[in-house]
Design a protein around this nucleic acid. Structure first.
Ligand SMILES: NC(=O)c1ccc[n+]([C@@H]2O[C@H](COP(=O)([O-])OP(=O)(O)OC[C@H]3O[C@@H](n4cnc5c(N)ncnc54)[C@H](O)[C@@H]3O)[C@@H](O)[C@H]2O)c1
Ligand SMILES: NC(=O)c1ccc[n+]([C@@H]2O[C@H](COP(=O)([O-])OP(=O)(O)OC[C@H]3O[C@@H](n4cnc5c(N)ncnc54)[C@H](O)[C@@H]3O)[C@@H](O)[C@H]2O)c1
Lengths: 259, 259
DNA sequence: CGCGGTTTGTTCTCCCGTTCACAAACTCCT
DNA sequence: AGGAGTTTGTGAACGGGAGAACAAACCGCG
């Protein structure tokens, strides 16, 4: 099965002509890709509680999304459900895991074993979700050699050797912002093509390298924006210093994104 | 969800009719809100390096976005630039900070002071970005009393008292997933209306409460998906076990989202 | 005072994502 | 076997965001 590109099913109205289970391997929308891990987790939860079949409605509830959206998302992977019945939990779980690429473990390196790096290195949740931390790197000689979660912290200079040795494609940056670009460059030069960046810095990478950033300050600031909105729209709250005593009509704050 | 919506300000195209400095307080798109903190950080960086004026092109480069997008985003706040000149760094910085609501500090509580909670509590970056951690809470009596970043860990039961005492509107959940919903309920009951959730769990909250989640496994899995894509499209890489020796024509992997 | 150069703010178009709604497909019961 | 009930998969409508393009506005200079 070598993914024959875009056959683009072309004739969807042929009815039951082709029941072949061939999943269309091309072109899953980015928004869907971002939700597949959520479905995977929800399915794992259902599986753990002994559920072996679920409807799109149940799974959608467990994942916190709309059921129509869920069905459309799953339809990009193929037709893995049974009408009138629902989805087989184990089967669908495997199909999503395969689509994401976490049926085997991906080796990962973490660079910058400070506060955050320690937490990441100690975190046990990665191994059960398709990732295996194979190396911890830090530039500070005082940290090198220390054991964190069963791995020794290695000198940053060994990065090329370690990446090659373990066939690492994914790197995590948990250094201060000033070092992030340099670390990124070294990672890319060593062969890493996917980077998860925790430093508050904009990374420049060559074509073909993916970067995702996790920025806690930004998340908090987004919350703060909405919080301020709520405080302005609803003077009954005590979140702002000057709260008007007489409550206005509590009209539904329509523009707000809260659920 | 009833949400009548759509009062639809109706006349956004007032043009130059109203030069009054009153910024339009309504309806900033969510995508823009998510980028304002990035601009704020870029402006702070420029300010720190002594730049006092910048064009949309420069700021966009510093923030890692398209300049047209930047200008459109800023236009939602008002007209704070000068044509032919650009933006005054300090002035724009203040305007964005005011719009986000981080001209004063927001008090924040963190629940669950384990690996991750320790890292968050020790992090110094929050205070300079509009947030002040006022309480650390944990249910484990062995952790209570421990000092982390200058704050003592308090028993979880004190949550209502602490939230009220410090007028906390924003809470961070860093507990295991099984405890997340319970902690969330208690936070909401205590008066918190914005939650940043690190636990891999779907939180259910009443209308009017905002939740944002940070899920590192999901981020890694999204990277893994693209990584697998790259490995399939380009057999020259060593990222997959079975790499074909003879390189096929490296046709441009058009669908790939890498930059 | 006008003119060229520069940069913003906005408009327009296109594309992606969300949601509704429904026919097709399956199970179960009679 | 057939019909009733259930649930999937998807076509289609809709809304929002991204990016290109451009007129308006501003500065400096002659
Ligand atoms: N700790 C948090 O909760 C938190 C929250 C938000 C963002 N962040 C960001 O995450 C990053 C790490 O945060 P932290 O609190 O762990 O910082 P930290 O200072 O505790 O740790 C940084 C580590 O990186 C190492 N380092 C520095 N330069 C390096 C280089 N060139 N190569 C390799 N290693 C290098 C240092 O030796 C140190 O061990 C920072 O960019 C921070 O802004 C952290
Ligand atoms: N550590 C990481 O790098 C990392 C990465 C990804 C996700 N996470 C998630 O973040 C969360 C925290 O991770 P961690 O590694 O810090 O876990 P941890 O076990 O080290 O810490 C959890 C803390 O929460 C406390 N706690 C448990 N139940 C509580 C309750 N009901 N009320 C208050 N406190 C309670 C525990 O006493 C403990 O101190 C987990 O959900 C984890 O899945 C962590």
């Amino acid at each position: 099965m070598t993914t024959p590109r875009n056959a683009r099913t072309a004739a969807p109205a042929v009815g039951a002509a082709e029941p072949s289970a061939k999943p269309v391997e091309r072109g899953i929308p980015e928004a869907t890709v971002a939700r597949l891990p959520v479905y995977l987790r929800a399915l794992t939860g259902l599986s753990d509680t002994g559920v072996d079949t679920c409807s799109s409605e149940e799974l959608a509830a467990a994942a916190g999304v709309n059921s129509a959206k869920l069905r459309k998302d799953l339809s990009y992977l193929g037709s893995y459900g049974t009408r009138g019945v629902g989805y087989d939990v184990e089967y669908l779980r495997y199909q999503i895991a395969r689509e994401i690429g976490v049926t085997q473990d991906w080796p990962v390196v973490i660079v910058g074993i400070g506060n955050l790096g320690h937490a990441l290195a100690n975190y046990s949740g990665f191994s059960s979700r398709g990732f295996r931390i194979v190396a911890l790197l830090d530039a500070d000689p005082r940290r090198q050699g220390e054991d964190v979660g069963g791995l020794g912290i290695r000198p940053f200079e060994e990065i090329e050797r370690l990446v090659e040795e373990h066939h690492v494609a994914i790197g995590v940056i948990a250094t201060p912002a000033v070092a992030a670009q340099h670390v990124c460059d070294r990672l890319v030069a060593a062969g890493v093509t996917s980077i998860l960046n925790f430093a508050p810095a904009v990374l420049t990478v060559p074509h073909g390298v993916d970067v995702r950033k996790v920025d806690l300050s930004i998340e908090l600031q987004i919350l703060a924006y909405h919080e301020q909105r709520k405080a302005l729209a609803d003077p009954g709250s005590d979140a702002v210093p000057d709260a008007l005593p007489s409550g206005l009509a509590p009209l539904a704050a329509d523009g707000v994104v809260s659920r």
